[in-house]
Amino acid sequence: MERKTPTQVGLAALFASLLAVCSNVAVGRESPVATSGIRSDFVCTHDAGPSVVSQDANAQRLFAYARHLDYLYGGRDFKSENVDDFNRISRYYRIASAFGNADATEALRDLQWRLNDNTYDGVISQLRRNRTEEVERLTTLLSQQYPSRGYWFQANRFAQAYNLHEAFILYRKAADLGNAEAQYRLAQYLDVESVVLAKAFGAKAKDIAFALPLYRCAAQQGHGGAMYELAIKQVDNRRYTEAMAGFQQAIMMGENGAAFRLREAFGDKSNWPPSLAMAKDAARYERYEKIRIFLIDERKFAPRVPDLNSIVPLPPAALPEWNGTFLWKNEQLTPSEAPSETLVAQMAKAKRLDARTGLPEAGKPKDMVP
């Protein structure tokens, strides 16, 4: 049966890895599922959060303001002509990161990859060197501030380098520490019905016994992709009431594939996807489609739909009036008070950073300052 791809899956990296693994199988090598030892009982652990117990309140203020600016910027890439916008956002992330804010460290790491050198002519520029160096530094720092996320990022790098054996070991370490993304990814590698074509990695049909606890644990932590996969399995078992509830929860967690499923459940009937025993309902169809588009448009910022039951509750509840807005989006657009320049300067000075950029005072990369 055709499967809808959840938004969380990094298909490019996974399929690149798939080609490498298929090559390995061709020459008789043992599969990474077998060699990595991930076929073992999993005890659900919820992520305990950063290793830094006491989080600095001012650092959180800087992170929140930077994220607000980033959202207003629209998550677009930065080029040489708008590097000032990049610096304006990244300095708050950098200073917050220096005070142990793991969310700022991760956000800054992601921001680096959106800084594009549009003058690139095949020669590695200073900007690219600076970006690579900072990404390396931030990856190491994140491993210290938030170990489960650190293992997750390290695992991704091994996967992208086609080293699935090491990647699986690190995904498992992250999963055991409670990282929901790692739990979900491991479950997909073990689930022969998943979109990652797990059979190619050595998974067997019986490995669903290892995959399901991982899916459930990730879903308990609010992972929309994991909840979506569990709902799909309810569809396969013709447990449509449970599937509908699961898709509804997955949408709340930000999974646009679930919005597609429920949209189709209320649309014109066909052989696929299943109608989930629902009658045609044009109004519900339209609302789920608007929600699906919203989740796709906002995917860079991990959107949620906590107010879903106020927008389109499941039958038999009546469809309420709706003005077309989303609580999550309204919260992102709510003006965030800028931290005072005095506070920023004090925090930067305490960590020996340049208050204009958040970079170290000595040896500032010239291509990344205003």
Rank of each mutant, 00 (worst) to 15 (best):
D70L: 04
R61S: 11
A211Q: 03
D117A: 11
G37L: 01
K290F: 05
Y71D: 02
S97I: 00
D85A: 05
K233N: 09
R304Y: 05
I296G: 05
A107R: 02
L11F: 13
Y71L: 05
E361M: 14
Q220A: 14
A198K: 04
A96E: 11
L115Q: 02
F15A: 11
A203P: 03
R128Q: 15
Q8H: 07
G224W: 00
Q332Y: 03
D117P: 05
F294S: 01
W328A: 00
G75I: 11
D56T: 08
F15E: 15
P147H: 04
A155Q: 08
F201N: 03
I251L: 05
N24Y: 13
N118K: 11
F301Q: 04
A245I: 07
L142I: 04
M244N: 05
P6R: 00
R109L: 14
A250S: 14
A226P: 06
D191W: 07
A317N: 12
R76C: 09
Y93M: 01
G28I: 06
Q126I: 07
F168Y: 07
S340Y: 09
A265I: 06
D85I: 01
F63E: 07
E136Y: 09
L197E: 15
P306E: 10
R149V: 06
G122V: 08
R299P: 00
A203R: 12
M278Y: 00
V192S: 13
F42E: 09
P335Y: 09
D77A: 11
L19P: 06
R292F: 00
V312G: 04
L141P: 01
L11N: 13
P273A: 08
Q346V: 14
S23Y: 12
D41A: 14
G74M: 11
F78N: 01
R137S: 04
I38P: 00
P313K: 12
P303T: 03
A279H: 10
K329F: 04
Y151G: 07
I251S: 02
R29P: 02
L343Y: 05
Y184W: 11
R356S: 01
L343C: 08
P339E: 10
A174N: 05
P316L: 02
